[in-house]
């Protein structure tokens, strides 16, 4: 590994972490959604600074080419985050549905109230 690639790895991991933290700071991201990205960024930084930890971990699982461990963990993380997003989407959709239903019901009540009010005003004018 050359010095250039060593620095490149660390810089990329740092950049990722900084983006996530900055988004958190500006409330563009909620903690519960950011936690996976923070963990992934921290791991990337760890492996970038100490490449030997990757070799050690790969050996632990019997993976011959250490980079495969990186790919495996990355894909697994992306898959789980995607799944979480689908679940969140489902939840949001059902919330939106309930709101739409309630909105329509409120509109009906409002219309009834307005009609009754108009009637009362007419009655008062007449009487």
């Amino acid at each position: 590994m050359t010095l250039a690639s060593y620095i490149f790895g660390i810089a990329t991991a740092l950049l990722g972490l900084i983006v996530v933290i900055e988004m958190l700071r500006r409330h563009r991201l909620r903690e519960r959604h950011a936690v996976w990205w923070l963990i992934a960024g921290t791991f990337a930084l760890l492996v970038g600074v100490f490449p030997n930890t990757l070799r050690w971990a790969a050996g632990l699982f019997g993976i011959e080419v250490p980079i495969n461990l990186v790919f495996f963990v990355s894909i697994a993380t992306l898959f789980l985050v995607c799944l979480q997003h689908s679940a969140e989407l489902t939840k949001l959709e059902s919330k939106a549905r309930v709101l739409a239903e309630q909105n329509a019901l409120q509109e009906l009540r409002m219309r009834a109230v307005e009609e009754r009010l108009a009637e009362l005003i007419e009655e008062r004018k007449a009487g």
Partner: peptide, 14 residues
Amino acid sequence: AIVATLPFNLGVGG
């Protein structure tokens, strides 16, 4: 008829 208007399409179930 009494008409309830949904703001967007929910399908027959909704």
